[in-house]
Design a protein around this nucleic acid. Structure first.
Length: 271
DNA sequence: CCGGACGCCTGTCGGC
DNA sequence: TGCCGACAGGCGTCCG
C-alpha cells in the first residue's frame, strides 16, 4: 500500500497534532499485526512526551523521552487523527490518545503493519539499520544506482524496489518511474547504463515529488489523516492502465508479472 | 551473496 | 445466488 508519498503525506498530516504533546494512553484492540504488539507497549508509552516525528523510507519514527516508536503501514494501513470519542470501525486496531483528547487511530485490514516500541535509537533497529538512501535527499543519484547495480542480474524493477538499494519505491512508483525513464522493467539491473540510471534517478524523484504534491495515491485503503484520499491515482501514467494507450506512442500498456508483482509498461517506449 | 518463491492477512471482483 | 480463484500499495524468510 503506502509507498513513500503516502507515508510522507501521512507524516505531514499527523505531525502537527502529535509533536510536543504528551501521550495520555495507548489503547490496543488487536495486537496481531505483522509482529504482535508487545505486552509492555502501553506502559512504555503512557505519560511520555512526543519529541519528534519523522519518516525513514516507509517507516514513521516517533522519538520519545524514553526510546522510540516504529510504525509501518504494510499493504493496507492508514493513520487518522480523530476525536477520542469517535467510535472505532472495523480494523481500527489501536488508538494513541494525546493530551488534548485527539487520538491517532491506526487501521490496517490486512494486518501487515508494524507498531513497535524500541529502547534503542531507531537508526540502530534491525528494521531500519540496513535501509538504503532516501530518494529525495542527497546521496541518491544515477552514479549511486549504477554502482549498486554492478553485476546484478535481477530485473531493474525489482532492483529499485529493494529497500537496501533505495527506500520508498514500491510497486506503483517503480512502474511509473521506469515508464518516465523509458526503461523496460525486466532489464537486468546490471545492464542498464549510467546515462539511463541518471534518468531513472531523476524520474524517481519526479514521480515521488508529484505524488506527494497530490497527497499520495489512493487505490483502496489509503486515506490521509483527515480521512480524505490522495489524488495522484488519476495522474498515473502506466500503473493500472493495462490496454490503455501509451501517452507517448499510443501502444497499449502491457501488464506482466515481474518478481511476483504486476508491472505496467509500454512495450514500445521502454527498452 | 544472489535471485526467486512463499507466506502472512482480509477484502473485492469476475467468471462459472 | 454461491463458490472459487486471482489479485491487491510490503517485506521477512527460506531455499537452491
Amino acid at each position: 500500500m503506502p509507498e513513500l508519498p503516502e507515508v510522507e503525506t501521512t507524516l505531514r498530516g499527523i505531525r502537527p497534532h502529535l509533536e510536543a504533546r504528551r501521550i495520555w494512553e495507548l489503547q490496543v484492540r488487536e495486537r496481531r499485526l505483522r509482529y504482535p504488539i508487545a505486552d509492555e507497549t502501553e506502559e512504555r508509552l503512557a505519560g511520555q512526551t512526543i519529541l519528534n516525528l519523522l519518516r525513514r523510507g516507509k517507516y514513521l519514527l516517533m522519538g520519545l523521552e524514553q526510546g522510540s516508536l516504529l510504525i509501518h503501514l504494510g499493504m493496507s494501513g492508514s493513520l487518522r487523527i480523530v476525536p477520542e470519542t469517535t467510535p472505532p470501525g472495523p480494523h481500527d486496531h489501536l488508538d494513541l490518545v494525546v493530551e488534548d483528547g485527539r487520538c491517532l487511530r491506526m487501521r490496517d485490514p490486512r494486518r501487515f503493519g508494524l507498531f513497535i516500541w524500541t529502547a534503542e535509537p531507531p537508526e540502530d533497529h534491525p528494521l531500519i539499520r540496513d535501509l538504503g538512501p532516501e530518494p529525495l535527499e542527497g546521496g541518491f543519484n544515477g552514479d549511486y544506482l549504477f554502482f549498486r547495480a554492478h553485476n546484478r542480474q535481477l530485473p531493474v524493477k525489482a532492483f529499485i524496489m529493494d529497500a537496501k538499494v533505495v527506500v520508498g519505491v514500491g510497486n506503483i512508483y517503480a512502474s511509473e518511474s521506469l515508464f518516465l525513464a523509458g526503461i523496460h522493467p525486466n532489464r537486468p539491473a546490471g545492464q542498464v547504463n549510467a546515462v539511463q540510471y541518471d534518468l531513472l534517478a531523476s524520474s524517481i524523484r519526479t514521480v515521488l515529488g508529484e505524488s506527494i504534491a497530490a497527497g499520495g495515491t489512493s487505490l483502496r485503503d489509503f486515506v490521509r489523516e483527515d480521512g480524505h484520499p490522495g489524488y495522484f491515482a488519476r495522474k498515473l501514467r502506466a500503473y493500472g492502465r493495462e490496454g490503455q494507450a501509451c501517452q507517448h506512442c499510443g501502444t497499449p500498456i502491457r501488464r506482466e508479472k515481474i518478481g511476483q508483482r504486476s508491472s505496467f509498461f509500454c512495450p514500445n517506449c521502454q527498452v
